[in-house]
Amino acid sequence: MVKDTSVNICGVRLKNPILCASGTYNFRESGLYYDPAALGCITTKSVSLLPWDGNDAPKIAEAYGGMLNAIGLENRGLDAYIKTELKMLKAAGATVMANVVGRTAEEYAEVAGALAATDVDLLELNISCPNVKDSGIAFGTDPKTAAGLVAGVKKASGGKPVIVKLTPNVTDITEIARAVVDAGADGLSLINTLKGMRIDLRTKQPVLKAGGGGLSGPAIHPVAVRMVYETRRAVSVPIIGMGGVMTGADAYELMLAGAVAVAVGTAALIDPAAPLRILEELKVFL
């Protein structure tokens, strides 16, 4: 008999506990390498009300055992997302979590509201992206602002489960976690990227055009394990763990720390089929 590896997140059944992380999956291209319905859930790239251009290149830099990105949340906007990416993923039978960004609390609520009327399965609020100067960072680092944002989104999202994605770039992640859960968050996902920078020795200037970027990949895995562990002990809503998962063992470690499900980001950039491999490796532990 095939073992049931499904998990339940806020009333949504994921057929297994492996997701792909926001910003590291694109249906047209990643979809060539595996069936999106084979994963527990596909988290899509952050989507905003109107298209965002993102930053100029270079937007990628390497770090020891990791990478920095300053994509700047480049996306084609809500309309295009609903008509293309979301439609194609749902038609392919995938469970989909739409990741939402905005410049203002109202914009978050508007996007969440529009998505609530679609067949998307879960909403994930990116209140933590450290790349965009005038957005994410302010929401995700101040408990009051974060709570206000979540309360507004919950009101607009008509019962669609709202997962709040937390930034590790805070003094105490449990403080923010409690604040957003008190404001109505149905679940949490963590961690987003850590602030970082590389400097080119020849030009003596930052490698990334935007200056700094977000660190991801195996280098941040222990940070993720600790933050999931601490957050698990502070709140009782389901936690989706992520950060530097390269193997099934890495994923299992996050589950031991308290995550119900685990998302794979950077590993999928290195190998498009990594999420499937990690799922197979994880099954040995479950």
Binding site: G23, E29, K45, I60, R76
Partner: peptide
């Protein structure tokens, strides 16, 4: 361009282009 994935998943390598509207020069992508 500097690449995060090299196969289209991360948007790390985007560059600015314009629409040509020339049937002899078919363009890829959006």
């Amino acid at each position: 361009e500097r690449m995060g994935c090299g196969y289209g998943a991360c948007a790390g390598c985007t560059c600015k282009t314009r629409l040509l509207g020339d049937v002899l020069k078919p363009q890829n992508g959006p």
